[in-house]
């Protein structure tokens, strides 16, 4: 298992995303988040809807709408300083060092351009090769993501492809610029279960073969166990627990992590036998976040001090394990 190595591919320290409100003071939708991804490693960012997972990924790509501000103590990617990149710097990195795969492949592909146009454009943007060579490479990419009859697919428009095929095209497009880091934002949420499994297998295989770093965003803990080496659990704009997947699943220390694990029957999709244990309530929107621990209103272990102060993310061991809770669950004795 690879843990945070001395030279991470992506290193993010103190990333905040601010909703700039006209009348009220700025609200941090993502609040002082730090994480890193090593080459060849998959970090899963997991949490319920509204946790700030997509915002985090989009902030790295600088693809957020202008109404949202990004502030960070330090962001480095593959040895480059990306803390406050210029437009040209970020453009040179998008697609070539860091590429993103989105949730809905249909809306994420341009409906009026063929697969070939969209792939060739991505290829030639970062590599000065002829159209014919780019076309050959597009074909290779489609074969790499295992699209059957790839040559005929090149001429198709996105609406003629199935959901799974579209997501494969998106993946091929993300790989076009030979990136080192892939940001995958819930890449299988829009797909049905079987197809979703195939896409996850494909991503894992590509990641292994190409030695990619991957930030894998999901709300599905089962998927986390399959794809990721390490996991960061996000709640209301903050990381509340992080560590290797094995550790976090074996001994969750944050009550929210435990709740997420228990809400999902162990290692299977067979829901009917188990009654899913829901965590009551919902993630507070950034503006309505409680002043202390954001999970406090839903937490069974909450005490008075939880309301007084935000629990800091405290390292628990040297391998990057950390959690943010004043009254953590006890480590299970083996």
């Amino acid at each position: 298992m690879i843990s945070a190595s001395p030279a991470p591919l992506l290193d993010v320290e103190g990333l905040s995303i601010l909703l700039k409100e006209k009348k009220r003071p700025d609200v941090a939708a993502v609040d002082d988040v730090s994480f890193s991804v090593a080459p060849g490693e998959t970090l899963a960012l997991v949490g319920e809807s509204g946790a700030g997972k997509s915002l985090t990924a989009l902030a790295l790509m600088r693809l957020l709408p202008k109404t949202l501000g990004v502030a960070a103590k330090r962001i480095t990617l593959d040895g480059r300083d990306l803390t406050a990149p210029s437009d040209n710097e970020i453009r040179a990195i998008r697609g070539s060092v860091m590429a993103m795969i989105f949730q809905d492949p249909l809306s994420s592909l341009n409906p009026v351009l063929t697969v070939e146009r969209q792939l060739v454009e991505a290829i030639r943007l970062h590599e000065p090769i002829s159209k014919a060579d780019a076309r050959r490479r597009a074909l290779e990419l489609l074969e790499m993501v295992r699209i059957p009859a790839a040559a005929t697919r090149l001429a198709e428009y996105p609406h003629r492809l199935s959901g799974g095929m579209r997501q494969r095209v998106m993946i091929a497009m993300a790989l076009a610029g030979r990136p080192k880091l892939i940001l995958a934002d819930e890449p299988t949420t829009a797909l049905d279960v079987t197809i979703s499994g195939q896409i996850i297998d494909l991503l894992m295989e590509l990641q292994r073969d190409l030695g990619l770093g991957m930030l894998f965003i999901t709300h599905d803990l089962h998927v986390v166990r399959t794809v990721a080496h390490r996991v960061a659990v996000m709640y209301s704009g903050r990381i509340v627990e992080t560590g290797t997947v094995d550790e976090v699943f074996a001994t969750p220390r944050h009550p929210y992590t435990e709740g997420l694990i228990q809400a999902r029957p162990h290692g299977s999709f067979a829901v009917d036998g188990h009654r899913l244990r829901e965590i009551n309530g919902t993630v507070p929107v950034p503006a309505a976040r409680p002043s202390g621990c954001a999970f406090e209103p839903r937490c069974a272990r909450a005490e008075a001090d939880c309301r007084a102060q935000v629990p800091p993310l405290v390292p628990d061991n040297d391998e990057g394990r950390a959690f943010a809770c004043f009254h953590p669950l006890q480590e299970r004795v083996a």
């Binding site: 998008r94 994420s108 991505a122």
Partner: peptide, 14 residues
């Protein structure tokens, strides 16, 4: 405001 425009920017287009 469509997703595919975001994709185009994500590729590195100006």
């Amino acid at each position: 405001s469509q997703d595919y425009i975001r994709t185009a920017y994500a590729k590195g287009l100006g």
